[in-house]
Computed example of a mutant assay.
Amino acid sequence: MTMTTKMMKTARIHEYGDTSVIRYDSVPRPRPAFGEVLLRVAATSFNPTEAALRAGLLHAFLPVDLPYTLCWDVAGTVTEVGPGAEGFAVGDRVIGRLDGGGAAAEYVRAPAALLVTAPKSVPLAHAAALPVAGLTAWQAVFEHGEVAAGQRVLVNGAGGGVGGFVTQLAQRAGAKVSATASPRSTAAVLRQGADQVIDYTAGPVDAALDGPVDTLLNLVPLSPSDAAALAPLVRPGGRIVSIATPIEPTAGTGVSTMHVVARNDVAHLAALVELVDADALGIDISESRPLTDLADVHHLSETGRIRGKVLIVP
């Protein structure tokens, strides 16, 4: 007797290009290899960098094998434990960042070493918003920005998924937080702990900012002129941390600058989960969409019409 192959839905690309290259395929359900578990995906979440990957803009330093199943964030339930996989059992609820992608599917294989127990205080699907954006925010604020009590911090691009976590973590560190956002994001950014929200659509940021800041945390792509306009807002000897466009400091100011690419760190992810369960870090879900809407979500992101984190539910 032959066993029936179990199939699952995925969102994949077979070539690089615009949003039309995203296809919704039915493929065999995977089995976990050594050190892996199989997850029933509760949700993944969209990150803007994934649109750049889909378009082929990251191919030089992040090549992938095609066809490629999209999405790095995962929240799910362990349904099978592979040989050599330790720390989890069938039925455990987990989250993680999958550097090889694959989370835009009903099931995904995941290295057990990259997973942590999901927060208990929020729906499992909501926790899918935490890994990529949360890790990026944690490392930008604490490792690279060295944000501490009494400092003044400017968060440029606080209305996005990373921005919500950056604002909360900087505020929790005891900093006074000024944040740029569009009017549609102002209320959310204030709820997340910003002391001042600057409407970047209304005029130059420096006109609304009350004096220089100790640290600039830039979270959005910038034109050369916009990047140059932000640099003088940092006091001499301060810091510039950017997860997007690198920003050169003003000459002679002694400002340190760094361009950050977040790494996968389960200790940091576990610390974020602890904050969520302690009601010290909120997860801002702007909307939840089915897997078959992923191409539309990519389009909305590329046209600047996404706020916060968008869940993708298979």
Rank of each mutant, 00 (worst) to 15 (best):
R152T: 03
R97P: 00
A148Y: 02
T117M: 04
H144A: 07
E146V: 02
L124N: 06
A133P: 01
P83H: 10
V147D: 03
R97Y: 11
T136W: 11
P123C: 08
P123M: 14
E146F: 04
G100T: 00
D92F: 12
I95E: 01
P111W: 07
L115E: 05
V90K: 10
A149R: 15
K120E: 13
R97Q: 15
G150M: 15
G134V: 06
A103P: 01
V132T: 10
E86K: 13
G91T: 05
E146A: 09
H126W: 05
L98K: 04
L135R: 14
L98D: 01
Y107T: 02
A129L: 05
D99K: 12
E106Y: 02
F88A: 13
D99V: 02
G101N: 09
A133F: 00
V116G: 06
G150W: 15
E80P: 01
P111Q: 10
G145H: 12
G87D: 14
V116W: 05
L115F: 12
Y107K: 06
V94G: 04
G96W: 07
T79D: 12
E80M: 06
A129I: 03
F142G: 04
W138L: 03
T117I: 00
A105I: 04
H144K: 15
W138K: 04
L98F: 03
G91H: 05
V141F: 08
K120M: 04
E146D: 11
I95T: 02
D92S: 11
V132N: 11
L98I: 03
T79C: 09
A127K: 13
A133E: 03
Y107D: 04
E80G: 01
